[in-house]
Design a protein around this nucleic acid. Sequence first.
DNA 1: CCTAGCAATGGTATCGGTAACATTTCCACT
DNA 2: AGTGGAAATGTTACCGATACCATTGCTAGG
Lengths: 339, 339
Amino acid sequence: MSDNRKATMADVARLAGVSPMTVSRALRSNTSVSEATREKIRVAADRLGYVVDVTAAAFSSGRSGFVAMTIPSISNANFADTARGLTEGLRESGLELLLGYTDYDMTEEERLVEAFLRRRPEAIVVTGGAHTDRCRGLLSGAGVPVVETWDLPRRPVDRVVGFSNADAGGCVARHLFDQGFRRIGFIGGDGTRDTRGADRQRGFVQTLETLGLPSNRQITDAAPPITMREGAMAMARLLDRWPDTQAVMCVSDLSAFGAMNAILRRGLRVPQDIAVAGFGMYDLSEHALPGITTVDAQAHQIGRETAKVILTALDDPGADAVPVSLPVRLVVRESTVSR
Amino acid sequence: MSDNRKATMADVARLAGVSPMTVSRALRSNTSVSEATREKIRVAADRLGYVVDVTAAAFSSGRSGFVAMTIPSISNANFADTARGLTEGLRESGLELLLGYTDYDMTEEERLVEAFLRRRPEAIVVTGGAHTDRCRGLLSGAGVPVVETWDLPRRPVDRVVGFSNADAGGCVARHLFDQGFRRIGFIGGDGTRDTRGADRQRGFVQTLETLGLPSNRQITDAAPPITMREGAMAMARLLDRWPDTQAVMCVSDLSAFGAMNAILRRGLRVPQDIAVAGFGMYDLSEHALPGITTVDAQAHQIGRETAKVILTALDDPGADAVPVSLPVRLVVRESTVSR
DNA sequence: CCTAGCAATGGTATCGGTAACATTTCCACT
DNA sequence: AGTGGAAATGTTACCGATACCATTGCTAGG
């Protein structure tokens, strides 16, 4: 079955009695090869247990066959959804997705992008619009389409598929105001690391101020990712410091869940004593008790749109880079509805 | 800065006044090149914005520089942890991780493995020990180390790093028994797709029977992944059918959370009316209210051990493949403690 | 002063495919 | 039967690095 040496195209060609070029064409299936020859080749390849060496193919053709993507965290369901959408959107064009995780660290992002470039990806997808200077340079000099996602950078590198994080924060602030809450807080993380979270916070705070409400109740010093534990701890501190707080927005659903349970563990009720809202449309916020008000950023759709943008850009490299801005949608649940 | 054509090693060599071979050595940093020359080359490379083409390097050296891994789902925090552990363990040896998702589908796994083989990975990691016959053939004929994880297959392909899912189920059954529960159910998924879940179920049921308890209260017909929604729906059905149930194990923490909230929404109490246990040591189960009893399968550690096994196997291909079996640990929380 | 021996560097072949172009085969139609 | 043109197949060069071996330069020790 298996020789000591891996079979090559030449071996298959010899066995099938054709030239290597014909084997190459037959196995890529889209070019003109007669059905009889194709079958002969398929049989020969099977007999030898031959599988194309994509490394060699990539090298020869100059096309690596994959798209590189950096996301902040592997275990964040939002980014996972975007990655899934992108994978689906790329599948039929034969492009694969190579994922890397930055841990919310721009230096790590730079390292990753450099590692990706060594593999000559056909496009690069990054999360957010904040990068080290050197990383920006690497991206813009890469010579392939670059897509920044999950954000609407003021000065994009190239393509953009995202949404306004500030709007997302703002619409939650307005919702809490509309529900009659006036003493409103925010729980998030270190904004220099998670700039998208910082944008949500900014939009949230600005809206509070526009509405004439105080905006000083903020706990945002932990390092991202801000998950359940950070949410719970921040909520405890917020309650200690401003016990009369009526409502809180958290930078993510995970932290909102943590915060909510911190409230409940104190014997307080949600939303009667304190209302809680999150961000990200996690399953968790739907199934939690009470259900948590959140913002749907359409993570999966971002991935699908990104795939479209990439395919378009590869098809026509000269085309203008028009930013794709997706709308966000407020999803109201029991955790913020006072009645 | 950037020419119309990407710079190559030859360009760098010309600019630095040395041979391409010396550039190759200098940039790989481990071989004998004088410090002066190395610096000259570094400067030249920087000036040209040159980054090594790993595709060409891989092709030339015959080593692709990465390990391929299939996991059932991208959004499962357990598998994400294992992937993270593996990435960390491989980092210093310069190996990268290429991830693929099977969606709990053995045919999809086969497709993925085939796609991976085209890229000539230096090792392959798969989840579980159940594969299509063709996939088994592909794996064993790959000529590189193969590691099956998250399971202890009776007839492994090659290397194994896992734990006994049956034991995990068994120890939960025994715990529930010890807590005084007697009418005990199980919520899971279609065992032909998630064989590890099925193993946990088997161990659970066997232990119940050993203890002389009835074991018919099972809701396991949904298709994996069994998440919060499936857990909630299954729990509703279980309560309708066997209203006097005292305790339930769910195949994962996510489904346990869904099940628990389905119970709470009915106005019942956990654990006073019904106890709930999960599996997987998710953050969620710690922060939920009440905290959910679970089993720590040491997902991250599985990744670290897998890295070790791979590096050992690559170092000495002749070495015996001794299965690595990690212990599981029951984590008791409020959801199963009756007092 | 000579030479063994090692460090530093260079030359050449080669990895396994694919692009581009050349050639042959085959068929339909005049 | 002859011919044009498309379909099928072959030939050659080359992608960009590294392996392998050859060569040069330098130093230490007799």
